[in-house]
Design a protein around this nucleic acid. Structure first.
Length: 288
DNA sequence: CACCATGTTCCTTG
DNA sequence: CCAAGGAACATGGT
């Protein structure tokens, strides 16, 4: 369930369920998911810790915990990879097939499940340091972004804008779906070289990114979601169709996974192409 | 069987 | 040295 809006919705869901609750016992069922990747060390460090807060940074969930009687906090970072889920179940409910980590709490059992095991739950936090600005914060604006768009680290970048948008150090939280969506809202072709966008286009894109992400968060916050993923309306709210809201998916995404369908703005057919080994969807008519 | 999939990291290529 | 492209990771859906 991975881009910024989905992680944000999950964060809001988990915060009240976890805050103030204590980990009685951590259990690692798939060592590659955790850091340190020695299950014993991971389990020991979390035993007895209490959740202070749950926040989000880019596509990461940031769990802040404290140990009773000790000063300082423990930071636990969560990333859902492509197929990760997190939810709190009643003790006694069956574990999902691909459960990677469980945390027995004083009010239930926290599950981190991930079919493909690309996700992470780690006590190492250095990944946060590499992230660019939060797209929904004032730090993210056309002025600061213009310079960064031209560069990749200290060198020049010649990549197309769609590919640049996936670079988490440029701006944090955009993934393959919302990169296509934001460019469509902005009316900018995904093929355009990032360093050739003029200031007005950059401003337009910044606003489109904010709009697309905010709209997605609002959409995911409005409808009831099943974070355990058992029903038709699961935590993957950007994908698939809810049985009782047949138009939901149609309305949510304008171009992603809609090759051959009509562009919602001009009616021309949406195309799919491959950039950096990943699908890009766009309208050849209204994205220039 | 073939191809596709919301992400990130590592290795190779040019 | 470096940017960019592709493979790898692992499983499932179509």
């Amino acid at each position: 369930m991975p881009e910024l809006p989905e992680v944000e919705v999950l964060c809001r869901h988990l915060a009240p369920l976890l805050q103030g609750h204590t980990i009685l016992q951590a259990s690692v069922r798939r060592a590659k998911i955790v850091r340190p990747d020695t299950p014993g060390a991971f389990q020991e460090q979390l035993q007895g810790a209490r959740f202070q807060s749950v926040t989000r940074r880019g596509k990461y969930l940031v769990f802040t915990l404290e140990l009773p009687g000790q000063t300082g906090v423990i930071t636990l970072l969560g990333h859902l990879g492509m197929t990760g889920r997190m939810f709190v179940q009643t003790v006694g409910e069956p574990l999902p097939k691909h459960t990677a980590v469980t945390l027995l709490l004083d009010n239930g059992r926290f599950i981190f499940e991930d079919t493909r095991y690309f996700g992470r739950l780690t006590l190492e936090t250095k990944a946060l340091g590499a992230l660019g600005p939060e797209p929904l914060s004032p730090d993210f604006n056309a002025m600061m972004w213009a310079g960064k768009l031209r560069k990749n680290g200290r060198s020049r970048s010649r990549q197309p804008i769609k590919v640049r948008l996936l670079d988490q150090s440029l701006v944090a939280g955009i993934g393959n779906i919302y990169a296509s969506e934001a460019l469509h809202v902005a009316g900018i072709s995904p093929k355009r070289r990032a360093n050739r966008l003029d200031p007005a286009e950059i401003q337009t894109l910044v606003r489109a990114i904010r709009r697309v992400l905010r709209t997605a968060i609002a959409g995911g916050s409005t409808i009831p979601l099943d974070f355990a993923g058992r029903g038709s309306r699961d935590g993957l709210f950007y994908y698939g169709q809810a049985a009782d809201t047949p138009d939901y998916y149609e309305e949510r995404l304008r171009v992603y996974d809609r090759a051959g369908q009509a562009c919602p703005r001009c009616g021309q057919l949406i195309r799919r192409m491959v950039q950096a080994s990943r699908s890009t969807y766009y309208c050849p008519s209204c994205q220039k």
